[in-house]
Design a binder for these strands. Structure first.
Lengths: 138, 138
DNA sequence: ACAGAAGTTTAGCCTGTGCTACAATTTTGC
DNA sequence: GCAAAATTGTAGCACAGGCTAAACTTCTGT
């Protein structure tokens, strides 16, 4: 009933892009916070994700090691060029998913919540389709 | 641009239902495997998720502790009533998301992959909407 | 029936993300 | 200018989920 296609294959893809999801969420958040308040501090991220500053700190450290974020001790957090590119892509994708959900008649609050969860799992192919449909519908 | 709604709230919801995602994936898999091959063994799950049998074993143990799965040492894995109910709900939700993606004109393979990732993040409200739309379109 | 194959468990390691408690630094307000 | 507040960093814990290696149990075939 469920899938006509191979069963094991989808999971290999799905299963734990979780690693990258956090990265995507954080660069997106940093970009957003910088846009809104000029600089992004650790506390801002901690509040944004409702985690302790310690957790935020460790994730920032990891993403710095991965070349997405840049910061100095006790200094604000910035995006590297690579991080900026990723953030832009994520924002666009997020935007498309969110607007698509709205176009289905989902209320704003629900659409915002669902878009957060869904965005990381939409393939480029599906994303293009959603974009088309959003453009058509308004 | 992005969200008209509160920024911190979506994340509190999104951030780590990851715990439950694994549970959902596993009960769904167990149900599917039992349907197809009568019994579900550890190796079946390990292959299904493309992880080592050791990893599968530990997750099964956790889900048994949580009352979703039932098994005895060296014996097949079964669903508890609670696990069965969860599996059924997940299968239905999965089905709806998958068929919805197909109805958008996404190819089967892509739809299968994306449905895997997306299903856990679709709220009941959005799910009902998708169901309506699938029913209408075919 | 019993050896080898298949399947399962256990031990022990790693990484990521969560926390509290406490130390250090920077900012702020008198 | 200096104490208090805010912010950031560090130490050390927990748990989930990833692994390999090795031991143990069950199944299979001759």
């Amino acid at each position: 009933m469920t899938g006509p296609t191979n069963k094991s294959e989808p999971h290999r893809r799905t299963r734990r892009d979780h690693a990258t999801e956090t990265a995507e969420d954080y660069v997106e958040a940093v970009a957003e916070i910088i846009t809104e308040r000029e600089v992004c501090r650790l506390v801002d991220l901690a509040k944004y994700f409702a985690v302790s500053h310690v957790t935020a700190n460790r994730i920032v450290a990891r993403l710095q090691k991965e070349g997405l974020l840049q910061t100095e001790p006790y200094q604000p957090i910035e995006l590297t060029p690579k991080g900026k590119r990723l953030a832009d892509r994520c924002r666009q994708r997020h935007e498309i998913v969110y607007r698509f959900l709205l176009s289905l008649g989902i209320d704003q609050k629900t659409a915002a919540i669902d878009a957060e969860g869904i965005e990381h799992h939409v393939s480029p192919k599906t994303l293009r389709k959603l974009e088309q449909l959003v453009d058509q519908s308004g």
